[in-house]
């Protein structure tokens, strides 16, 4: 995909108007504190807390469960331990540390000791980019090694992109979301090639 196409596809998918009914959820999400009272197997407690807060920002709870409700942070922690190669997991950790340091630098306090509002503000600022900056980030993280002089930016961006991807994948492949939110049909039994989308509702689970 070239730059122009990438840009176009991003504008397309972010330009979709959301349906009514999410505003109550929005309020709910803003007041909810993410829960990090689980014992990580790879991350340290502070890192696990940050991964949890970020997952919560990527997919907040609304009238339907959010990422934290379906144990996304725990699964990311497990993947880091079992699935990531050693260099991959160290790269993730390095980016996460840049994230935490930049937070401390900006707000003058450790991330985990700050208010949920400030945490959320910082996370959202990191992910809210113009389409052009998004392209720059995606191009940067496609590099195999950190370009000289841009190490912090490179590791932070790689972390943010990976955390987002893992959160989405873990969320939509969790049993609760797959069965209760998406359209779950393990044994369809027949093939109907063309039917009204209203008869299905949400996207098929798989």
């Amino acid at each position: 995909m070239n730059r122009r196409q990438l840009l176009k596809s991003i504008t397309l998918s972010t330009g979709v108007v959301i349906a009514a009914g999410t505003f109550s959820g929005l309020l709910q999400a803003a007041t909810k504190t993410a829960n990090a009272d689980w014992l990580p197997v790879f991350l340290n407690r502070e890192e696990a807390f940050a991964v949890t807060q970020i997952a919560d920002a990527i997919i907040p709870a609304s009238e339907i469960p959010g990422a934290v409700d379906v144990a996304v942070p725990q699964f990311i922690d497990l993947l880091l331990k079992d699935v990531f190669s050693i260099p991959e997991r160290e790269k993730f950790r390095q980016g996460l540390q840049v994230f935490l340091k930049q937070y401390a630098h900006q707000y003058g306090a450790a991330f985990h000791k700050s208010s949920v509002q400030l945490q959320r503000q910082f996370i959202e600022k990191n992910y809210t980019l113009s389409p052009e900056s998004t392209i720059n980030v995606l191009e940067l993280v496609a590099e195999i090694d950190a370009p000289r002089g841009r190490e912090n930016e490179y590791f932070l961006s790689s972390f943010l992109v990976t955390q987002r991807e893992l959160t989405i994948k873990s969320y939509f492949t969790s049993e609760k979301i797959a069965k209760q939110v998406l359209s779950y049909d393990p044994i369809p039994g027949r093939y109907d090639p063309c039917m009204p989308v209203s008869e299905v509702g949400n996207v098929w689970t798989f």
Binding site: I10, I59, V203
Partner: peptide
């Protein structure tokens, strides 16, 4: 086929909008 939530991977948006979109057929 209609795309599912995997279509969102190559971008950076987050939040309720994203969640809402991704539960719908793409």
């Amino acid at each position: 086929s209609r795309e599912n939530w995997e279509r969102s991977i190559p971008e950076l948006s987050i939040g309720l909008n994203l969640k809402e979109q991704l539960t719908r057929p793409g």
